[in-house]
């Protein structure tokens, strides 16, 4: 195959989603955010929803999510994304409305907004990136930090007497009657990426069908925060994060 054949669109097997622009991402090598962003871009393109989507960006590493996907965005105060999404979806019920939040945003400072939006059964999708650490501020302990896991605010490892147990927010949300779909996924392998794509697509479809709140937790890596190579981070995640945050559907109604 010569070069002109290779770049012939008919022969393309993979391309950047149209919804994604060319802005270089600020994410670290090995970070899960980039993959999840790409999946969201693909799904919005596949669903032909670019002109009907309003996304809510968090505070945390994904604060700049609005730079990479060519859709309308609102950037929320830390933890408040579900409150914004509630109002947007109530006032524009025919739109696809989703929040994109990290563990500090969703499971610490935004706990009340998250639980109550889910409990009201707001017809929104929540994409929850759980890497067990505050990446943006430099690697502090998160509510989902594992016991024994070191961070800049738990330098000797998280201990129960001082910091309590990791908070499993997704399990908690699955208890709520307003929630229709809860799943926990990852993006460390091709198979996992495909499953996560299906999960996000389902969450988006639920939002459009007004079925209630959908939550897709993506157990993620933070190579910089965890101080590991991207490859080691994936292995460490499988070995340590998955037992605490097991993969699979928690609720699918």
């Amino acid at each position: 195959m010569n070069i002109s054949e290779i770049i012939n669109p008919a022969n393309l097997v993979y391309e950047k989603p149209n919804v994604m622009n060319d802005t270089p991402m600020h994410y670290c090598p090995g970070c899960s955010h980039g993959v999840v962003h790409k999946l969201i871009g693909e799904i919005i393109g596949d669903m032909n929803m670019q002109d009907k989507t309003i996304a809510i960006a968090p505070v945390g590493c994904a604060v700049f999510a609005y730079q990479y996907l060519d859709i309308d965005w609102q950037q929320a105060a830390h933890g408040r994304a579900p409150a914004l999404a509630t109002a947007v979806k109530r006032l524009l019920p025919d739109r696809l409305v989703f929040t994109y939040q990290g563990d500090g945003d969703l499971a610490a400072i935004g706990t009340a907004e998250t639980i109550h939006a889910c409990n009201r059964g707001e017809n929104i999708a929540i994409i929850f990136i759980n890497n067990g650490i505050y990446g943006m501020t430099g690697g502090q302990m998160a509510p989902t930090t594992l016991l024994g896991m070191k961070s800049s605010t738990s330098p000797n490892g998280r201990e129960v007497p001082t910091a309590g147990h990791p908070l499993n927010m997704t399990n908690l949300l699955a208890q709520l009657k307003g929630v229709c779909y809860v799943t926990r996924q990852a993006v460390h392998t091709v198979a996992a990426v495909k499953k996560t794509k299906k999960a996000i697509q389902k969450a988006f479809e639920n939002s459009m069908q007004n079925k209630g709140t959908s939550i897709v937790e993506v157990v993620s890596t933070c190579s910089s925060g965890w101080k590991m190579t991207p490859a080691d981070s994936n292995d460490w995640m499988v070995e340590n994060m998955f037992p605490e945050f097991p993969m699979g559907d928690l609720k699918n109604e």
Binding site: I54, Q74, R80, L84, H116
Partner: peptide, 14 residues
């Protein structure tokens, strides 16, 4: 009230 004002933000943004 924290949620209320942020709901206002979401609505106003639209």
């Amino acid at each position: 009230e924290t949620a209320s004002i942020n709901m206002v933000y979401g609505a106003a943004g639209c």
